[in-house]
Design a protein around this nucleic acid. Structure first.
Length: 290
DNA sequence: AAATGAGTCAACCGCTCATTA
DNA sequence: ATAATGAGCGGTTGACTCATT
C-alpha cells in the first residue's frame, strides 16, 4: 500500500445523507446484539450500506439509549458557557460534563444560540457603558470573563488585596469596567461574557501568554481582591504592570492620529469610547470568525 | 399563495492522535 | 522505528423548517 491516508471506505458504494428508520433499526439491533468493537467492519456485518464513521456518528449522536433529547435547560446552557471558558472549542470535553448530551449537539447550540446571545449581551453592555459615564453608581448585570487555561483550580490561588484593578467607580469616565479592563490586555487570547450570578459582582479570569508570566492565570474573586497562583513568586504588582493599555487590536495610522488627540489614560482607568469601540469590534469579529 | 431569508441541526469531511503490526 | 489503521474530534455543509415580505 502506498503512503497517505487510506479512505475509510469505498465512497462509491456507501449511502450518504439522512438515515432511514430501517437503517436505524438495523444499527440498533446489531449493536445491542454484538456491541461496537470495530466501526469499520460494522456496516458490512450489520448489512448496512454505510461508512463505519457514519454508523458511529449516528449511534453516538442519536441512537444510543442514554442520549438526552430536547432543548437545553438554562442550567445546561450556563454550564456550557462556563465550560467553554475553560476548554474553548473542545466540544467532547464539554460534553463529558453534560450527561446525555453529545459534542455535536453542544457545538450546534453554541454556534446557533449561545454565541449570538453573548454578542447581544456585549452590545447591550456597550450601550450601558454610555450611560455609565453619567451614572457611576449604576450596576451592570453582566461581566466579562477573560479566558484561562484548564489548570486554574480552587486552592491554586492566593489573594492579593488592593484597589488596583478596575472598580466600578474607577471606570466611570467612559466604558464599562470590564470592557476597559479587557481593552488593556494586549496579550489577550480569548474573551467571554457571562451572566453575573448576583447581578452585582464582576468576576474575571486572565491568563498571561507573555513572559515572564506566560501560562500564569490570575482571577478576581470580588471587588478589590485578586487571586494570584501560589506558585507564582513574582511581584504581584509587576504582574499587573504587564497589562499595559496598548491598543487592541493594532491600530492603523488614522486610528493613531485619533488616539494622539486623546489624553493618555493610566492602566486600569476607563478607556476612550473610540478605543473601546475598536476593541469591541475586534472581539465581535473574533467570535463571529470574521 | 409564493418567494425569500434566517435559523437549526444532522451528517459529512478531513485532520490528529493512539494503537497495532 | 516506522507505517498502517481505527477512533475520535472539530469545522463545515446542506437540507429542512419557519418567519417574513
Amino acid at each position: 500500500m502506498g503512503k497517505g491516508r487510506a479512505p475509510c471506505c469505498d465512497k462509491s458504494k456507501v449511502k450518504k445523507g439522512p438515515w432511514s428508520c430501517e437503517e436505524d433499526l438495523r444499527l440498533i439491533t446489531f449493536i445491542q446484539k454484538n456491541g461496537h468493537k470495530n466501526w469499520r467492519s460494522l456496516p458490512k456485518q450489520a448489512g448496512l450500506l454505510r461508512c463505519g464513521k457514519s454508523c458511529r456518528l449516528r449511534w453516538i449522536n442519536y441512537l444510543r439509549p442514554d442520549v438526552k433529547r430536547g432543548n437545553f435547560t438554562p442550567q445546561e446552557e450556563d454550564t456550557i458557557i462556563k465550560l467553554h471558558l475553560s476548554f474553548g472549542n473542545k466540544w467532547s470535553k464539554i460534553a463529558s460534563h453534560l450527561p446525555g448530551r453529545t459534542d455535536n449537539e453542544i457545538k450546534n447550540v453554541w454556534n446557533t444560540h449561545l454565541k449570538k446571545r453573548l454578542i447581544k449581551k456585549l452590545h447591550s453592555e456597550a450601550k450601558l457603558d454610555d450611560s455609565y459615564a453619567n451614572s457611576p453608581s449604576s450596576s451592570s448585570s453582566t461581566s466579562l470573563v477573560l479566558s484561562h487555561n484548564d489548570t486554574a483550580n480552587e486552592g491554586d490561588f492566593k489573594n492579593v488585596k488592593g484597589n488596583m484593578i478596575i472598580g466600578k467607580e474607577e471606570a466611570s469616565k467612559s466604558c464599562s469596567p470590564t470592557s476597559s479592563y479587557a481593552s488593556n490586555l494586549s496579550n489577550l487570547s480569548q474573551v467571554h461574557e457571562i451572566s453575573s450570578p448576583n447581578n452585582e459582582d464582576m468576576d474575571w479570569i486572565f491568563q498571561f501568554n507573555e513572559e515572564p508570566f506566560s501560562g500564569t492565570t490570575i482571577r478576581k474573586v470580588h471587588d478589590g481582591v485578586i487571586e494570584i497562583p501560589l506558585e507564582c513568586d513574582v511581584d504581584s504588582w509587576d504582574m499587573l504592570d504587564i497589562m499595559d493599555p496598548s491598543p487592541h487590536p493594532p491600530l492603523n495610522a488614522d486610528d493613531h492620529s485619533k488616539l494622539d488627540n486623546e489624553a493618555s489614560q493610566p492602566v486600569c482607568q476607563g478607556l476612550s469610547e473610540f478605543e473601546c469601540q475598536k476593541w469591541f469590534t475586534y472581539f465581535e469579529n473574533e467570535l463571529l470568525g470574521v
